[in-house]
Structure formats: structure tokens, C-alpha cells
């Protein structure tokens, strides 16, 4: 297990501090956490945290904001071409968890991450790994649509341009069109690609952000409550889109809506006060939860 203090500047983010020798091994089967049964009635994660073909694996991940521990010993696999939904009450650490997966927590002052997180067996907190390349492979869509104050075209072309994926205008045109088509936005904006991205409606802006994320061809897309600022129609459109994107990408989505988790995901992870309480097939979680806390949550007793 390595311990990596979250660096405060980009320079140290790239180089990091020298890691202690790594002895952690990532098993393919579930491991047992040695936590004692605490007063919240939680001992260890219920259900199988592993999948056969994992894209990303996390083991014993702890995140601290200063002295406060936000998530505790979370271990979870995220499989290829699957949608994993993280549910749980506010403040349970699900957003913190997915922000670890592309090291977005690095930008937060005083945030510290321990444990192991791998992408295709490669440790993403390895000091030799460039966080810029990691983020090109693990894209992210945020809760609030955040298009850049640029044209729609430039919003989508931004990622490919900074990563040198395109060299000519024609290539850029192609990538922009393909990304917008995949995000289901092309037909709505193809006549006004030069107008500002901030002038679109909320749902269109969020789809633009998704197009922007997939333009750099990531392996994994993280979505942090992507529909919480949208109306039901835009939400339905995004959910459809997530289902289509599953063919090519691995998706981890945080949501407050259990219906949404049930609609879009194959596996669901239930977080509670920083603990990963239960993981399982989405059907099983919602029809036959095995942990009392999960059952209380999905039956609406709290949260």
C-alpha cells in the first residue's frame, strides 16, 4: 500500500514524492477488511467487489480532508463496458470516491489519498505517472454543466487540441462532429457551431460537456450527478446517452436518484458515511438488498 500526500501544485503533482516500496498486490478475489464492527452497524462491504475484467480497481482507499476522513477503506472494481452507480445519502463520500479515480482531488487543498487505485493494472498514484495522461484516459462530467466560454466547436475541440490528437482542421472537424453525434447533440447544434457554448440550454450544455469528454477518447468516464441540474426530459436524454456510451466506455456515475441508478447501471455501490456498505448487481441491490443500511436507504427510511 502506498501513501501519497495530495500535492498542492501541478509540478509536484507530476513528480510526486518518492513512494515507499510497493508491496500491495491486487487480488482478483475479494479481500477482507479488518475493521471492527462499529456502532453504525457496519463491518465490511457486503457483496462481491470484483468483476472478471476490471478496468479500474481500488483497494483500501482512504481519503482525508485535513483531519477529517471522508472515505474509509473502500475497495471496488469497475469493469469494462459497464455502468457502475454510486448511491448513498449526501456526504457519504461517493463524489469524493469518483474524484479519486482521475485524481481531481489533487486540486483540493489539504486532501490526502491513501490506498491503491489502478487503471488497467497501472497505479494511478504512481509518482512516475503523469496526471495529465491519466485524465486524458479518465474523463469527467460534473454536476453543474460547465462549458467553457468558447464556441461549441472550440469546446469539443479543446481536449483533442491540447493532447495533440489532431493536426489539421479536417481532422478536428471530424472529431468534433463524431463526438457531438455520439453525445446526441449534433443535429441540434450543427448549424451554430460557432456560437457560444454557454448559450445552450442546461441539458444541451451537459451533453456538450459529455461530447467534450468523449472527444479525447477516454477509457473511463466519471459522472458526478450529471443530471441533478436538469429537468426530467433532459435527464431522460442523458440517461439514454449513458446507455449508448456503455458500448465503448466504462462509466462510473454518482447519483442521488435511485431510479436513475436502477435505469442506467449494471452494478450499484451503496456508500454510507464514508464506508462502502454494499456492492452488487443493480437488480439485486434494489430488489434484494443484503445489508440493513442499504435496505433502509432504498426503501426510503432515510437519505
Amino acid at each position: 500500500m502506498i501513501t501519497q500526500a495530495s500535492p498542492q501544485t501541478e509540478e509536484s503533482m507530476d513528480t510526486g514524492k518518492p513512494a515507499p516500496s510497493r508491496t500491495a498486490s491486487i487480488g482478483t478475489r475479494s479481500r477482507v477488511s479488518n475493521k471492527a464492527l462499529d456502532d453504525r452497524g457496519f463491518s465490511e462491504t457486503v457483496g462481491d467487489i470484483t468483476v472478471d475484467q476490471p478496468r479500474m480497481q481500488t483497494r483500501d482507499v482512504n481519503v482525508y480532508y485535513g483531519d477529517k476522513q471522508a472515505i474509509k477503506d473502500v475497495s471496488l472494481d469497475i469493469g469494462r463496458n459497464e455502468v457502475v452507480a454510486m448511491i448513498g445519502p449526501s456526504g457519504c463520500g461517493k463524489s469524493t470516491f469518483i474524484r479519486c479515480l482521475n485524481r481531481m482531488n489533487d486540486t483540493i487543498e489539504g486532501c490526502r489519498v491513501t490506498g491503491t487505485i489502478t487503471l488497467d493494472k497501472q497505479d494511478i498514484y504512481d509518482p512516475t505517472l503523469d496526471v495529465v495522461q491519466l485524465r486524458a484516459r479518465v474523463g469527467m462530467v460534473f454536476q453543474k454543466p460547465n462549458p467553457f466560454p468558447k464556441s461549441i466547436y472550440d469546446n469539443v475541440a479543446y481536449g483533442p487540441r491540447i493532447h495533440g490528437l489532431v493536426s489539421s482542421r479536417m481532422e478536428t472537424d471530424e472529431i468534433v462532429q463524431r463526438s457531438l453525434e455520439r453525445a446526441g447533440l449534433w443535429s441540434e447544434v450543427k448549424d451554430r457551431l460557432t456560437s457560444s457554448g454557454t448559450g445552450l440550454s442546461g441539458g444541451q450544455q451537459q451533453r456538450l460537456c459529455i461530447a467534450r469528454a468523449i472527444a479525447v477518447s477516454p477509457d473511463v468516464i466519471l459522472m458526478d450527478e450529471p443530471c441533478s441540474a436538469l429537468d426530467p426530459i433532459a435527464t431522460a436524454r442523458i440517461e439514454e446517452l449513458i446507455d449508448e456510451l456503455r458500448e465503448n466506455y466504462t462509466i462510473a456515475i454518482v447519483t442521488h436518484s435511485m431510479q436513475q441508478a436502477a435505469r442506467v447501471s449494471q452494478r450499484t455501490a451503496y456508500f454510507h458515511l464514508g464506508d462502502l456498505v454494499e456492492v452488487g448487481e443493480t437488480n439485486q441491490i434494489f430488489t434484494n438488498p443484503r445489508h440493513r443500511l442499504t435496505e433502509d436507504y432504498i426503501t426510503g427510511r432515510f437519505g
Partner: peptide, 24 residues
């Protein structure tokens, strides 16, 4: 949120400043 958006696309800090923050 604009900075986060740029970082999430794999922009470095200086790219983020030059291309997103300063134009805005």
C-alpha cells in the same frame, strides 16, 4: 467549475490558465 472542466480533460495548469481562465 471551468478550471475543473479543463483539468478533467487533461489540461496542465498553464494550458488551463492560457486557454480557459485568461480568455474568460
Amino acid at each position: 467549475s471551468l478550471r475543473d472542466g479543463a483539468y478533467a480533460l487533461g489540461a496542465t495548469r498553464s494550458e488551463m490558465i492560457k486557454q480557459i481562465v485568461l480568455p474568460a
